[in-house]
């Protein structure tokens, strides 16, 4: 891989991902309020929020926290760059977990009980969704013979044809990943939950701005993985992929507005159930087809 092949996609991701992320969260805010029968905020509201946050002072509780939040941003960006240069999907998932770990460390570095409770719940969320992300990576390997994103998109049939179960499972864990109800245990964009703001409790002002920015990068990365299920050699497949991303996001918003929050035991049980039922079955069938072809 040449220097230019790395630097251009990375730069494009760093500059464009916040814009795309803002489109998704604007879509979220407007659609959510319409679903609740309200006029709701303008489409650009997430942009206003972030600009405001960067204009505010931060009440810094300790130095470690700010450093950790910055590390969270750096690793989120780094993870996205790995993906968009077409590199290893497994590495993407591991680096993403590392980013998440920094967020948890930021949350438990303070002595606010809400914040540390939030970080524990974040840990449980990771425990719930991590198996599915690994299965997804394995699924992609099974059909394309490589973990590299550049090779996964260089095929004739879209991955969703062979990995429908993986796709459904992955969309399911996106609910946890985006902290949407019913699985918004660690923190939520909605007001008043039992532990106030959870993970972001002690993060304020411009430091919260950094964290929101990192979340935009993560949103774009996760939606890109959704798109990975649809992209083929054919350039038209990109249109389908974008369409699929918006439909998936719509489903996530709908679920967010319909279901109340559940306890962590239930989250773990349901998510692992879905992982084994959809992801596991998909993997098994793929394996059987492979063996049959071998005969």
């Amino acid at each position: 891989m040449s220097f230019q092949q790395v630097i251009y996609p990375s730069l494009a991701f760093i500059l464009l991902a916040p814009v795309v992320g803002l489109v998704f969260s604007g879509y979220d805010r407007v659609l959510s309020s319409r679903m609740q029968g309200r006029q709701g905020p303008p489409f650009l509201q997430p942009l206003y929020d972030i600009v405001k946050l960067f204009n505010k002072e931060a009440t810094v509780v300790n130095r470690v926290q700010t450093a950790m939040v910055i590390a969270f941003l750096i690793f989120s960006v780094f993870t996205g760059c790995i993906f968009f240069v077409g590199s290893d999907l497994l590495l993407v998932f591991f680096a993403l977990t590392l980013a998440e770990v920094f967020l948890m460390l930021a949350a438990c570095s303070t002595n606010s009980p809400y914040s540390s409770m939030g970080s524990q719940r974040e840990l449980l969320s990771i425990m719930a969704y991590e198996p599915m992300t690994l299965l997804t990576a394995i699924g992609f390997y099974m059909i394309s013979g490589s973990f590299n994103v550049s090779e996964i998109i260089n095929r004739d049939v879209p991955a969703i044809v062979e990995l429908p179960g993986m796709f459904a499972g992955f969309v399911f864990i996106l609910i946890i990943k985006f902290r949407k109800s019913p699985f918004d245990l660690s923190t939520s964009h909605h007001a008043h939950q039992e532990m106030v703001k959870g993970v972001t409790q002690d993060i304020s002002g411009n430091v919260l701005g950094i964290m929101e920015l990192a979340e935009l990068y993560e949103t774009v990365l996760m939606m890109a993985i959704v798109a990975l299920f649809f992209i083929t050699k054919n350039p038209f497949s990109y249109v389908w992929a974008v369409l699929a991303c918006f439909i998936v996001y719509f489903i996530l918003i709908l679920i967010d507005n319909v279901f109340p929050r559940v306890k962590w035991e239930k989250m773990l049980l349901v998510t692992w159930g879905v992982t084994f039922a959809l992801g596991g079955a998909n993997l098994l069938i793929l394996d059987m087809i492979k063996i049959a072809e071998g005969w």
């Binding site: 709701g40 964009h189 304020s204």
Partner: peptide, 21 residues
Amino acid sequence: TPVYDIERFGIINTGNPKHAD
């Protein structure tokens, strides 16, 4: 509530003083 809907102005009811303006 939907009738008055202060979120029209971008107002979010946060429970956290550290996030509030």
